[in-house]
């Protein structure tokens, strides 16, 4: 395992541990979770089909912590243009909001009151037909995560991809990712 893999694995482990740590934390959020949708794509060397992926799923965010606020999600990634449902993937992930800034420079682009909450995320994506072990680890930086009372908006989130041997296998980009609290 090379140093990049070790670093990536350490980052993923840190995100998972940080997400699991505040199990009994307060305050609780008035929302438990909702739906998440994103549009994303991957680099040529990722081994994933070129095209646009539509990503739809559910997330839970049980706490409302000012620092290191965790959430988890399960999603399906469907290549929509070109449409290849046979190459769809399932993805399990955890996110950690590092902090939340109410007074931020991007306030002007939002209609509602918002907070800037940069986040890190780790997820495991795999094609069900190949088995969960033959997947891809995605480490995502949500530098532009804007939160409102009932939604999260992520813009231009880059991803580092590692194959099942935890070797770097390319990169990805989430053009946008919107999460709406529903329950």
């Amino acid at each position: 395992m090379n140093s990049v893999s070790r670093l990536a694995l350490s980052a993923a482990a840190a995100i998972v541990v940080a997400a699991a740590a505040p199990v009994a934390a307060e305050p609780r959020s008035p929302w438990l979770g909702g739906s998440v949708v994103s549009v994303r794509g991957f680099s040529e060397d990722s081994g994933l089909p070129a095209g646009e992926y539509f990503d739809l799923g559910l997330f839970v965010e049980p706490f409302r912590l000012k620092f290191l606020n965790p959430s988890a999600s399960v999603r399906s990634l469907i290549p929509q243009f070109p449409f290849r449902p046979g190459s769809s993937m399932i993805e399990f992930g955890v996110d950690i909001d590092l902090f939340s800034l109410r007074d931020h420079p991007l306030k002007g682009i939002m209609r509602q009151e918002s907070a800037l909450g940069p986040a890190l995320a780790a997820s495991w994506a795999f094609e069900p037909s190949r088995g969960i072990a033959a997947g891809t680890l995605c480490l995502t930086a949500h530098a532009l995560r804007l939160r409102t009372g009932d939604a999260r908006y992520n813009l231009l989130s880059p991803e580092l991809l590692l194959d099942s041997g935890l070797n770097p296998s390319g990169w990805g980009l989430r053009l946008f990712e919107f999460s709406y609290f529903l329950f």
């Binding site: 994303r40 794509g41 089909p49 070129a50 646009e52 243009f81 070109p82 980009l173």
Partner: peptide, 13 residues
Amino acid sequence: TWSFAGGGPGPGT
């Protein structure tokens, strides 16, 4: 966002 379906420059985001 902009998606091309069946035409344009080619697959991608």
